[in-house]
């Protein structure tokens, strides 16, 4: 296993440009690489911006989804490296599981490590998991697993079947309605650094095969969790499946239902009922 410690977060626009240029000619198995950063603290200004865009209260604990923002540039660096078998353009985020052992304080120094694993066979291609582990004071406090689908790609011989489903209840009663404006992708890109062109504008999204710009899945997840502020266990696992893309602009509903000591969630189109996100929040 090769572990590389980076001094700073990689520059995301450059990575996405490189991803587009080096999309062709990839293949083989997952690299055995781990990228890491040590002693990272959240930038208070970025945190305040992120909290506002996702509707989290600004508090002394990091929003549950915020460590993802810290780890994501490393994951993109890993995926854009030539050794990574799948092309980043076209990868679709289909599932994200976050586990937090306790709330993380805003001032805590965090060690981040990311890697890829579980190259798996999916009915319409292959999936790969990008994992992140966040430690404070030498103990792991937060981990995540983001599953990406590459349509038409194939996993190596003997790969396991991918696991992208999350089971939730009927969730028939909407708790809230959100008007998601057409600049929602640009706003989240600014605070998260995720400048994937499919989220930024209709034109750039069309270049990658989407009819309009789509909302970031992690923004939808963050906003759903923000709606449950004060109602989440301290030690918690949040597992969501991203179903159909949320095209911008849209009006969507959030449904919540108490389940298993936590919550089941669904974000759906307000008129058509199309499922954008379903998920579970469970105490651990």
């Amino acid at each position: 296993m090769a572990r590389t410690v980076l001094d700073a977060a990689p520059a995301m626009p450059a990575l996405f440009a490189r991803a587009a240029l080096t999309a062709r000619g990839r293949g083989g198995d997952l690299p055995d690489t781990r990228l890491a950063r040590v002693g990272v603290t959240a930038d208070p200004a970025q945190l305040a911006d992120y909290a506002r865009v996702c509707r989290f209260p600004l508090s002394d604990a990091l929003p549950l989804t915020f460590p993802h923002v810290l780890a994501f540039p490393l994951q993109v660096a890993l995926m854009t490296d030539r050794a990574f078998p799948l092309a980043l353009p076209g990868l679709v985020h289909v599932r994200n599981r976050i586990e937090a052992d306790r709330p993380i304080g805003v001032g805590e120094a965090l060690d981040l490590e990311v890697w890829a694993e579980r190259f798996a066979t999916h009915r319409s291609g292959a999936t790969v998991d990008l994992c992140a582990s966040v430690s404070a004071g030498g103990a792991e406090v937060w981990r995540s697993r983001s599953t990406y689908l590459a349509r038409g790609a194939s996993a190596p011989e003997g790969a396991p079947a991918s696991d992208v489903d999350v089971e939730v209840g009927a969730l028939e009663r909407p708790a809230a309605q959100w008007r998601v404006p057409d600049d929602a992708g640009r706003r989240y890109a600014k605070v998260s650094g995720d400048v994937n062109p499919i989220h930024l504008s209709g034109l750039t999204a069309k270049a990658f095969g989407f009819k309009r710009a789509i909302a970031h899945g992690m923004w939808v997840k963050a906003r759903a969790l923000a709606a449950l502020s004060g109602r989440l266990p301290d030690a918690v696992a949040v597992d969501v499946a991203f179903r159909k893309p949320l095209f911008l602009p849209s009006t969507v509903t959030l449904s919540t239902e108490e389940a298993g000591g936590g919550w089941d969630l669904a974000v759906r189109n307000a008129t058509a009922g199309t499922e954008h996100l379903i998920g579970t929040v469970r105490p651990t």
């Binding site: 208070p44 200004a45 305040a48 209260p57 600004l58 508090s59 002394d60 502020s229 004060g230």
Partner: peptide
């Protein structure tokens, strides 16, 4: 500087 009244009151209640 970036905290709202609601942020501060919520944190204080919590």
């Amino acid at each position: 500087a970036r905290a709202s009244n609601q942020d501060m009151l919520t944190a204080t209640l919590d």
